[in-house]
């Protein structure tokens, strides 16, 4: 089973619905045994970084996720879930993330409107199986005020918003998506479809 981790933040139903549409069965859970036995982990989330990390720690999920991913289990972080994969975030302070991907989360310091909200197009940095069913220039739906500053080698696709905004990142068995694939129409559907093939 593929587990969508429920730590009390975010609209998990729409993420689950998104996977259901591409034929990937998922279960929403925070149960430690279920997560251990799972085929893959999906880490969603909206809201504040600090609250999310605190909730993960309180539910004993932080170390569990790190352990499982280090053993080679696939993980997909979506939106705040992607940001949690990084070393640390500077959202209202300085907080440690899961440290699975190198880099930090920082606030947009730009002249354009923040949050970066709406449909922006993707540019491809490098080939990756997750891009199999989409093409460069396709639009995806973003809502966020903080973005990841990481290594070029982990960057798969990005959008321009005065700065280079990482949209999809990947390091070995770890994937992160900053936009909302479950809200990105056909393009989002096709990204989830490709991800299903990656973990199957």
């Amino acid at each position: 089973m593929n587990i969508i981790i429920d730590y009390g933040l975010g609209n998990l139903n729409s993420v689950q619905k998104g996977f259901e549409r591409v034929g990937l069965e998922t279960k929403i859970s925070s149960d430690i045994e279920e997560i251990r036995k799972s085929n893959s982990i999906i880490l969603p989330g909206v809201g504040a970084f600090r609250d999310a990390v605190k909730l993960l720690e309180e539910k004993n999920l932080k170390n569990l996720i790190i352990e499982e991913v280090n053993k080679g289990k696939n993980i997909l972080g979506i939106c705040l879930g992607m940001q949690l994969l990084y070393d640390k975030s500077f959202e209202n302070g300085e907080f440690d993330g899961l440290g699975l991907i190198k880099g930090n989360i920082k606030k947009f310091d730009i002249s354009l409107k923040v949050p970066h909200m709406g449909w922006n197009n993707l540019k491809f940095q490098q080939n990756n199986p997750i891009l199999k069913y989409i093409k460069e220039g396709d639009y995806v739906y973003y809502v966020h005020s903080y973005y990841a500053e990481g290594e070029e080698e982990d960057l798969i696709a990005y959008s321009e918003y005065e700065v280079k905004v990482p949209g999809i990142v990947n390091r070995e068995n770890i994937y992160g998506i900053q936009f909302h694939p479950e809200k990105s129409g056909t393009v989002g559907h096709n990204i989830l479809k490709a991800y299903k093939e990656i973990i199957s």
């Binding site: 139903n13 809200k183 990105s184 129409g185 989002g188 559907h189």
Partner: peptide, 8 residues
């Protein structure tokens, strides 16, 4: 509506 559509 949430079940039917995949846009915001």
């Amino acid at each position: 509506v949430a079940d039917e559509i995949n846009i915001p």
